[in-house]
């Protein structure tokens, strides 16, 4: 039986485990009775030599190798149940998560667009900012935006 089988057919596994241990106890008991033990006493002795049935079963379940998945599912169900019992807490927790995720996504999107992605030109390292400088300053300073016609003039007179 594969790991998946053992996990999904849990009830069958439990049933078989129980059957196996019951078989063991009954065999041992009947053998003790055959050796002239009192039936009640025989049953008691058989139980003692096997040990606590739940402890043995627990160890067998551990040996099955599906324990972590079963425990995970159980924890998950428990979490859902608890959340359903306290809708207020659940709402707050959910909102906190939603807002947190949302804000982080927005921040990343902005930073990615503005800082991380290169500019959509073939050689962004060679981009220059051109400004005009006047001799006199106003309250805005003496650096001015470069007018488009001026750019056209420069382009026409440039040797390149």
């Amino acid at each position: 039986m594969s790991w998946w089988h053992r996990l999904l057919r849990r009830n069958l596994m439990e049933e078989r485990l129980d059957k196996e241990l019951v078989f063991h106890l009954e065999q041992h008991t009947s053998e003790l009775i055959a050796r002239e033990h009192d039936p009640v006493e025989a049953r008691r002795l058989a139980r003692i030599s096997l040990g606590g049935p739940e402890q043995v079963k627990e160890k067998c379940r551990d040996a099955r190798g599906t324990r972590w998945a079963e425990d995970l599912a159980q924890d998950f169900r428990y979490a859902l149940r608890t959340l359903r019992q306290r809708p207020g807490f659940a709402t707050v927790a959910l909102l906190t998560l939603a807002l947190g995720t949302g804000a982080t996504t927005v921040m990343f999107t902005v930073i990615n667009g503005v800082l991380l992605k290169p500019l959509p030109f073939s050689d962004p390292g060679r981009l220059v900012l051109v400004q005009e400088q006047t001799d006199t300053s106003t309250i805005f300073g003496n650096l001015w935006a470069f007018a488009y016609p001026n750019y056209l003039d420069c382009k026409r007179e440039s040797p390149l």
Binding site: L21, H24, L50, V56, K59, D62
Partner: peptide, 9 residues
């Protein structure tokens, strides 16, 4: 006997 079955499994 208590360790027999876990060992078998």
């Amino acid at each position: 006997q208590g360790s027999l079955y876990p060992a078998l499994h």
